[in-house]
Simulated assay, not measured.
Amino acid sequence: MERTQRKQHTEITFIVPADHTCGPVSVVGDFNDWRPGVHPLVERPDGCRAVTVKLPSSQRHQFRYLAHGDHWFNEENADGHEGRRP
């Protein structure tokens, strides 16, 4: 996960490494009403998959990744992990 601070928002780039073989993946969180497929990760030339989302800088957000086969997983580099959301 990478963060870029802008004047009015923060750009978060969610990244799944190339060696994480899980098929199609989307980032699902409170910023997209937990709707799968709204923010799909796209493969990069190096094989990893990523998507960038603009979020308000002043808020904390919850999210998880959803992969093919209803496989949910966490971002290991997130600021924290609270309970189990979908």
Score class of each variant (00 low, 15 high):
Y65W: 05
R85G: 13
D30N: 15
E76N: 02
H71N: 06
A18L: 00
V27I: 14
V16A: 06
P24Q: 04
R35P: 00
P56C: 03
R84C: 06
H39Q: 05
T4I: 11
L55T: 03
F63C: 01
R44P: 05
V16I: 11
A67V: 03
T10M: 12
E11N: 13
Y65L: 05
H61M: 01
H39T: 02
G69L: 11
T10R: 10
T52I: 08
H61Y: 12
K7F: 01
F73E: 07
M1I: 06
E76I: 08
N32T: 07
H9V: 02
K7D: 08
D46Q: 02
R84H: 10
H68P: 00
D19A: 10
H71P: 00
D33H: 13
I15S: 06
P36C: 05
Q8H: 11
V42M: 14
F63G: 00
H61E: 02
P45G: 04
S26A: 13
H9D: 13
G29N: 10
K54I: 00
E75D: 15
T10I: 14
N77C: 04
A18I: 01
I15T: 14
T13G: 05
L41F: 11
P17S: 11
K54S: 15
H68E: 14
H81W: 12
P40M: 07
Q62V: 07
D33Y: 12
R35H: 11
L41C: 03
C22K: 08
V51I: 15
G47A: 08
T4R: 15
K7N: 07
S26M: 07
T52S: 15
F63E: 00
P45L: 01
D33P: 00
F73Q: 06
F63D: 00
P86K: 07
I12W: 06
S57D: 10
V53G: 05
N74P: 10
Y65G: 03
E75C: 12
F14S: 03
R3D: 08
P17D: 14
T13P: 05
G80W: 09
H20N: 10
C22D: 11
E82R: 13
V28P: 02
H9T: 03
H20R: 15
N74A: 13
P56N: 11
A67G: 14
